[in-house]
Amino acid sequence: SLEEAIRRAEEALRKGQTFEYAGIRVTTQEALEKFRKWAEKQK
């Protein structure tokens, strides 16, 4: 689910890792916010 993907992205960010979902790379807090906004639109 998208909620699960967001949780995994947050977890990866805390560990300093890269999270990738549907071709979207989350490597920074800013990218995480963009990913969250994108995920909201997918619902």
Score class of each variant (00 low, 15 high):
residue 1 S to N: 13
residue 1 S to Q: 12
residue 1 S to G: 13
residue 1 S to W: 15
residue 1 S to E: 13
residue 1 S to V: 13
residue 1 S to M: 11
residue 2 L to M: 08
residue 2 L to I: 12
residue 2 L to K: 02
residue 2 L to P: 05
residue 2 L to C: 10
residue 2 L to N: 02
residue 2 L to D: 01
residue 2 L to Y: 10
residue 2 L to A: 04
residue 2 L to G: 01
residue 2 L to V: 07
residue 2 L to W: 15
residue 2 L to R: 03
residue 3 E to R: 10
residue 3 E to A: 11
residue 3 E to Q: 11
residue 3 E to L: 10
residue 3 E to I: 11
residue 3 E to T: 11
residue 3 E to M: 12
residue 3 E to D: 14
residue 4 E to D: 14
residue 4 E to P: 03
residue 4 E to T: 10
residue 4 E to C: 15
residue 4 E to L: 10
residue 4 E to V: 10
residue 4 E to N: 11
residue 4 E to K: 08
residue 4 E to W: 09
residue 4 E to H: 10
residue 4 E to I: 10
residue 4 E to G: 10
residue 4 E to Y: 05
residue 4 E to F: 04
residue 5 A to L: 15
residue 5 A to H: 07
residue 5 A to I: 15
residue 5 A to F: 11
residue 5 A to Y: 09
residue 5 A to G: 03
residue 5 A to N: 04
residue 5 A to M: 14
residue 5 A to C: 15
residue 5 A to V: 14
residue 5 A to D: 03
residue 5 A to K: 05
residue 5 A to T: 09
residue 5 A to R: 04
residue 5 A to E: 07
residue 6 I to V: 15
residue 6 I to K: 01
residue 6 I to L: 10
residue 6 I to Y: 07
residue 6 I to W: 04
residue 6 I to Q: 02
residue 6 I to D: 01
residue 6 I to M: 08
residue 6 I to C: 09
residue 7 R to L: 12
residue 7 R to S: 11
residue 7 R to E: 10
residue 7 R to P: 03
residue 7 R to H: 11
residue 7 R to V: 09
residue 7 R to N: 08
residue 7 R to Q: 11
residue 7 R to W: 08
residue 8 R to W: 09
residue 8 R to Y: 09
residue 8 R to Q: 14
residue 8 R to E: 11
residue 8 R to M: 13
residue 8 R to F: 09
residue 8 R to A: 13
residue 8 R to C: 15
residue 8 R to G: 09
residue 8 R to N: 12
residue 9 A to P: 00
residue 9 A to K: 00
residue 9 A to R: 00
residue 9 A to M: 08
residue 9 A to W: 04
residue 9 A to L: 04
residue 9 A to I: 06
residue 9 A to Y: 02
residue 9 A to V: 04
residue 9 A to Q: 00
residue 10 E to A: 09
residue 10 E to Q: 07
residue 10 E to T: 10
residue 10 E to K: 06
residue 10 E to Y: 06
residue 10 E to R: 06
residue 10 E to I: 08
residue 10 E to S: 06
residue 10 E to V: 10
residue 11 E to Q: 07
residue 11 E to Y: 01
residue 11 E to D: 12
residue 11 E to V: 07
residue 11 E to H: 06
residue 11 E to S: 07
residue 11 E to F: 00
residue 11 E to K: 05
residue 12 A to V: 04
residue 12 A to Q: 06
residue 12 A to D: 03
residue 12 A to K: 05
residue 12 A to F: 08
residue 12 A to P: 00
residue 12 A to M: 09
residue 12 A to G: 03
residue 13 L to G: 01
residue 13 L to T: 03
residue 13 L to Y: 04
residue 13 L to H: 02
residue 13 L to Q: 02
residue 13 L to V: 13
residue 13 L to S: 01
residue 13 L to R: 02
residue 13 L to D: 00
residue 13 L to W: 05
residue 14 R to G: 10
residue 14 R to N: 10
residue 14 R to Y: 07
residue 14 R to C: 12
residue 14 R to T: 09
residue 14 R to I: 09
residue 14 R to P: 01
residue 14 R to A: 15
residue 14 R to W: 06
residue 14 R to L: 11
residue 14 R to D: 08
residue 15 K to Q: 13
residue 15 K to I: 11
residue 15 K to G: 08
residue 15 K to V: 10
residue 15 K to T: 12
residue 16 G to V: 01
residue 16 G to W: 03
residue 16 G to N: 08
residue 16 G to H: 06
residue 16 G to Y: 03
residue 16 G to K: 05
residue 17 Q to W: 07
residue 17 Q to H: 11
residue 17 Q to R: 09
residue 17 Q to A: 09
residue 17 Q to M: 13
residue 17 Q to G: 12
residue 17 Q to N: 11
residue 17 Q to D: 13
residue 18 T to V: 15
residue 18 T to W: 14
residue 18 T to R: 06
residue 18 T to K: 09
residue 18 T to D: 15
residue 18 T to F: 15
residue 18 T to Y: 15
residue 19 F to E: 02
residue 19 F to A: 01
residue 19 F to I: 02
residue 19 F to R: 00
residue 19 F to T: 01
residue 19 F to L: 02
residue 19 F to G: 01
residue 20 E to W: 06
residue 20 E to Y: 07
residue 20 E to L: 04
residue 20 E to M: 05
residue 20 E to Q: 06
residue 20 E to T: 06
residue 20 E to G: 01
residue 20 E to P: 00
residue 20 E to K: 03
residue 20 E to A: 04
residue 20 E to V: 09
residue 20 E to H: 06
residue 21 Y to L: 05
residue 21 Y to F: 10
residue 21 Y to R: 02
residue 21 Y to Q: 04
residue 21 Y to H: 07
residue 21 Y to K: 02
residue 21 Y to W: 12
residue 21 Y to M: 05
residue 21 Y to P: 02
residue 21 Y to S: 03
residue 21 Y to I: 09
residue 21 Y to E: 05
residue 22 A to E: 13
residue 22 A to P: 03
residue 22 A to Q: 13
residue 22 A to T: 03
residue 22 A to K: 11
residue 22 A to W: 07
residue 22 A to S: 08
residue 22 A to M: 15
residue 22 A to D: 13
residue 22 A to V: 06
residue 22 A to R: 08
residue 23 G to K: 03
residue 23 G to D: 08
residue 23 G to T: 04
residue 23 G to P: 01
residue 23 G to E: 05
residue 23 G to C: 12
residue 23 G to H: 05
residue 23 G to L: 01
residue 24 I to H: 12
residue 24 I to L: 08
residue 24 I to A: 02
residue 24 I to N: 04
residue 24 I to K: 04
residue 24 I to R: 03
residue 24 I to F: 14
residue 25 R to W: 11
residue 25 R to Y: 12
residue 25 R to E: 13
residue 25 R to G: 05
residue 25 R to V: 15
residue 25 R to N: 11
residue 26 V to L: 09
residue 26 V to M: 08
residue 26 V to K: 00
residue 26 V to H: 02
residue 26 V to T: 01
residue 26 V to W: 04
residue 26 V to N: 00
residue 26 V to E: 01
residue 27 T to Y: 06
residue 27 T to D: 15
residue 27 T to I: 07
residue 27 T to C: 11
residue 27 T to M: 10
residue 27 T to H: 10
residue 27 T to L: 06
residue 27 T to Q: 10
residue 28 T to P: 02
residue 28 T to E: 03
residue 28 T to K: 02
residue 28 T to N: 13
residue 28 T to M: 05
residue 28 T to H: 04
residue 29 Q to I: 13
residue 29 Q to W: 14
residue 29 Q to E: 11
residue 29 Q to L: 14
residue 29 Q to S: 09
residue 30 E to Y: 04
residue 30 E to P: 04
residue 30 E to V: 08
residue 30 E to W: 05
residue 30 E to H: 07
residue 30 E to T: 07
residue 30 E to R: 07
residue 30 E to L: 08
residue 31 A to K: 05
residue 31 A to L: 09
residue 31 A to Y: 04
residue 31 A to H: 14
residue 31 A to W: 06
residue 31 A to D: 15
residue 31 A to V: 07
residue 31 A to S: 14
residue 31 A to N: 09
residue 31 A to M: 12
residue 32 L to G: 00
residue 32 L to Y: 05
residue 32 L to S: 00
residue 32 L to E: 00
residue 32 L to P: 00
residue 32 L to F: 10
residue 32 L to K: 01
residue 33 E to L: 06
residue 33 E to G: 04
residue 33 E to N: 08
residue 33 E to D: 13
residue 33 E to H: 05
residue 33 E to P: 00
residue 33 E to I: 08
residue 33 E to Q: 08
residue 33 E to T: 06
residue 33 E to M: 07
residue 33 E to A: 08
residue 34 K to A: 15
residue 34 K to N: 13
residue 34 K to R: 14
residue 34 K to E: 15
residue 34 K to I: 13
residue 34 K to W: 15
residue 34 K to M: 14
residue 34 K to H: 13
residue 34 K to D: 14
residue 35 F to W: 05
residue 35 F to V: 02
residue 35 F to I: 04
residue 35 F to Q: 00
residue 35 F to T: 00
residue 35 F to R: 00
residue 35 F to K: 00
residue 35 F to E: 00
residue 35 F to M: 06
residue 35 F to G: 00
residue 36 R to Y: 08
residue 36 R to S: 03
residue 36 R to P: 01
residue 36 R to G: 02
residue 36 R to V: 13
residue 36 R to L: 15
residue 36 R to N: 03
residue 36 R to F: 07
residue 36 R to A: 06
residue 36 R to K: 15
residue 37 K to I: 12
residue 37 K to T: 08
residue 37 K to P: 00
residue 37 K to E: 15
residue 37 K to V: 10
residue 37 K to N: 10
residue 37 K to Y: 11
residue 37 K to F: 07
residue 37 K to M: 12
residue 37 K to Q: 14
residue 37 K to D: 14
residue 37 K to S: 10
residue 38 W to G: 01
residue 38 W to N: 02
residue 38 W to E: 03
residue 38 W to R: 02
residue 38 W to D: 02
residue 38 W to P: 00
residue 38 W to Y: 05
residue 38 W to M: 05
residue 38 W to Q: 03
residue 38 W to C: 12
residue 38 W to L: 06
residue 38 W to S: 02
residue 38 W to K: 02
residue 38 W to T: 02
residue 39 A to M: 08
residue 39 A to P: 00
residue 39 A to T: 06
residue 39 A to L: 12
residue 39 A to C: 14
residue 39 A to R: 02
residue 39 A to E: 02
residue 39 A to F: 08
residue 39 A to V: 15
residue 39 A to S: 04
residue 40 E to F: 05
residue 40 E to H: 06
residue 40 E to G: 05
residue 40 E to C: 09
residue 40 E to A: 07
residue 40 E to L: 06
residue 40 E to M: 07
residue 40 E to D: 10
residue 41 K to V: 11
residue 41 K to E: 15
residue 41 K to P: 03
residue 41 K to F: 10
residue 41 K to H: 12
residue 41 K to Y: 11
residue 41 K to N: 13
residue 41 K to G: 14
residue 41 K to Q: 15
residue 41 K to S: 15
residue 41 K to D: 14
residue 41 K to R: 11
residue 42 Q to L: 13
residue 42 Q to W: 09
residue 42 Q to E: 09
residue 42 Q to D: 06
residue 42 Q to I: 14
residue 42 Q to G: 06
residue 42 Q to M: 14
residue 42 Q to V: 14
residue 43 K to L: 15
residue 43 K to N: 11
residue 43 K to P: 09
residue 43 K to S: 12
residue 43 K to G: 11
residue 43 K to I: 15
residue 43 K to A: 13
residue 43 K to D: 09
residue 43 K to R: 10
residue 43 K to M: 15
residue 43 K to Y: 12
